[in-house]
């Protein structure tokens, strides 16, 4: 597997990250119940350019004490240009001691990727970034 721009970049959370497009936006709205995103600290690490859309590394790191009183309950990864915007949902527990994870996803074309975090106090946070895809990853 090859990819350009492997250096990636960190995207700080922004409130308008929740203002996504179409289906992804609808799904994000379902998750958050339309709540405004918090200014929580989410670092999203994605390549700027993915040569191969079949395996695009996605990593996120969320600043949370991960205690019983205050932890990240779930993190949703969504890609607004895929046939189905939902990529994966991570369900977390305080036993982790920190809040980060890495996985690899398929991206069918150049699109925006969103990470939406649900905190134990009922608030939400999000971050997003655009990944340029050279060869799409939804066919054979």
């Amino acid at each position: 597997m090859h990819w350009l721009g492997a250096a990636g970049f960190g995207a700080m959370v922004s409130k308008n990250a929740l203002a996504g497009s179409d289906e992804a936006a609808a799904r994000i709205n379902e998750i958050t119940g339309g709540a405004e995103g918090d200014d929580a600290l989410i670092i999203l690490d994605l390549p700027e350019i993915a040569e191969n859309g079949n395996a695009v590394k996605v990593a996120f790191d969320i600043d949370s004490p991960m205690t019983e009183e205050n932890y990240v309950k779930a993190v949703h990864i969504l890609a607004d240009g895929n046939p189905e915007p939902e990529v994966a949902t991570f369900n977390f527990s305080p036993a982790m001691g920190a809040c980060y994870a890495t996985t690899r996803m398929r991206l069918s074309k150049t699109q925006k990727v969103y990470v939406v975090a649900a905190f134990s106090d009922g608030s939400y946070g999000s971050a997003s970034a655009t990944v340029k895809v050279t060869i799409g990853g939804c066919g054979g």
Binding site: T89, A98, A101
Partner: peptide, 18 residues
């Protein structure tokens, strides 16, 4: 921890977590 995976997760699903 648990993960719900959709078809958009790449072949050979890989995770790292603390």
């Amino acid at each position: 921890m648990s993960v719900d995976l959709k078809p958009s997760v790449s072949a050979n699903p890989f995770f790292t977590f603390p």
